[in-house]
């Protein structure tokens, strides 16, 4: 089932400049895999080669950070929205 995925500005050039794209999948991991298959430039940008979420991105299903759900195994359904944002951090 198609799910809307909101991309951060830094990843949009890899998806033809689109803010929002759709991808098929029943879990967050499947949706991100489908996205990487359609837009090869996104491959490795969100999920590492080891198959885990990069620490410098946050992924949400609707209002929830998937790290507090089941990470890449978090289920998604029609009308869910997946958002990807950069993790913003630093320090003196």
């Amino acid at each position: 089932m198609p799910v809307a995925v909101h991309l951060p500005t830094v990843l949009r050039p890899h998806a033809g400049g689109a803010k929002t794209v759709t991808a098929e999948g029943s879990t967050v991991g499947e949706v991100l895999d489908a996205l990487a298959a359609e837009f090869p430039g996104l491959s490795g940008q969100v999920v590492s080669d080891d198959g885990v979420l990069h620490r410098f991105v946050n992924v949400y299903v609707n209002d929830d950070d998937v790290r507090y759900l089941s990470s890449l195994d978090t289920p998604v359904k029609d009308d869910d929205e997946v958002s990807i944002l950069p993790a913003v951090a630093g320090g003196a």
Binding site: T9, D63, D65, S83, L85, A87, V88, A89, G91, A92
Partner: peptide, 27 residues
């Protein structure tokens, strides 16, 4: 991070801010 030396923008606050900015036609 609740630290005097490092910071991490709270991910939920970031999502809310991003949505608000996008809704205003900004970023």
């Amino acid at each position: 991070a609740a630290s005097a030396k490092v910071y991490t923008v709270d991910p939920h606050d970031h999502l809310r801010a991003d949505r608000d900015a996008e809704a205003a036609g900004n970023a």
